[in-house]
């Protein structure tokens, strides 16, 4: 394999099954929105040694949309989100947010983004108030005190505000993490399994807050989740990945219809087995 070939997306090296990858060989998929997309993912690839963690992924997220990135463990969702955040540099292709290439120009746009992931923790020895204050100042939030008060009210954090974050329950930590993710009123919000550790009641409550935020702010949300009910409730559009590649994309209802399944859960299981 030549030096150049090693950095080509795998689709150039191996045949792709048209059944398994309906949107794979297309250029970035147009969703019929005229406005410039908030997130553009173009020929995105990431290779670790000999393994393609993400392999030729293309999709756009229009401004104000909530898009779900789905897939089983090791499907490449987290690496894709990490490249969109600029935490990982692609081997090939690019991820652009609000018109900026995240591999080279991320600092121009980071103040307008935020993210939440259960795999990344807030400093456990700081109180909730201290954490929100530190991140608010990092994001340059104007009128920070008032913003923190808003978040305390929205997320019911009043009773834990002066408690050490590391000693909160998993559900309380998630609420604090989501509050941190909204501290700067982000235009683009990346959520990695935002309700992973919450009971159904709290999970629904957080989803309600995210919906309200999205509606109020018109923010663009890209979220990964294993909870298909959550995806159906929150997402306008869904991208399903398997083994680093996109195997299906569409509106949740359309996908179920296309794959002759009852719901997205069945689509997910079907694609996980077929792809």
């Amino acid at each position: 394999m030549s030096r150049i070939e090693r950095f080509l997306p795998r689709r150039h090296l191996t045949p792709v099954s048209p059944d398994a990858t309906p949107a794979q060989d297309d250029a970035p998929v147009s969703l019929g929105i005229d406005e410039a997309p908030a997130i553009v993912v173009e020929d995105l690839c990431k290779k670790y040694r000999t393994h393609w963690a993400v392999d030729d992924v293309n999709f756009n997220v229009p401004k104000g949309w909530t898009v779900g990135l789905l897939g089983g463990n090791g499907a490449g969702k987290t690496t894709t989100i990490a490249m969109i955040m600029g935490l990982v540099v692609p081997s090939f292709g690019r991820a652009m947010v609000l018109g900026h290439d995240m591999a080279t120009e991320r600092h121009k746009v980071l103040s307008r983004m935020n993210f939440e992931s259960p795999y990344v923790a807030l400093p456990g020895r700081l109180t909730v108030r201290q954490n929100l204050t530190v991140f608010g100042r990092l994001y340059g939030v104007a009128n920070l005190k008032a913003r923190i008060e808003e978040l305390i009210e929205d997320f019911g954090l009043g009773d834990v505000l002066d408690r050490v974050t590391g000693r909160l329950s998993a559900g309380q930590k998630t609420r604090v993490a989501v509050a941190k993710a909204l501290i700067n009123d982000p235009d683009v919000l990346l959520l990695d399994e935002p309700t992973a550790s919450l009971d159904p009641d709290r999970a629904e409550w957080v989803r309600g807050r995210l919906r309200a935020y999205q509606k109020r702010r018109g923010a663009t949300i890209l979220l990964s989740s294993h909870n298909m009910t959550e995806v159906e409730q929150l997402c306008d559009f869904v991208v399903i990945m398997s083994q680093g590649r996109i195997v299906a994309m569409g509106r949740p209802g359309e996908l179920a219809e296309r794959f002759k399944c009852r719901d997205l859960d069945e689509v997910f299981i079907y694609l996980a087995r077929v792809a």
Partner: peptide, 18 residues
């Protein structure tokens, strides 16, 4: 190392902190 021990580095790297 506090950032590593508290798994907070990604939060910082995702923030506008240079």
């Amino acid at each position: 190392l506090e950032e590593f021990w508290s798994r907070n580095l990604a939060n910082l790297m995702m923030s506008p902190l240079q």
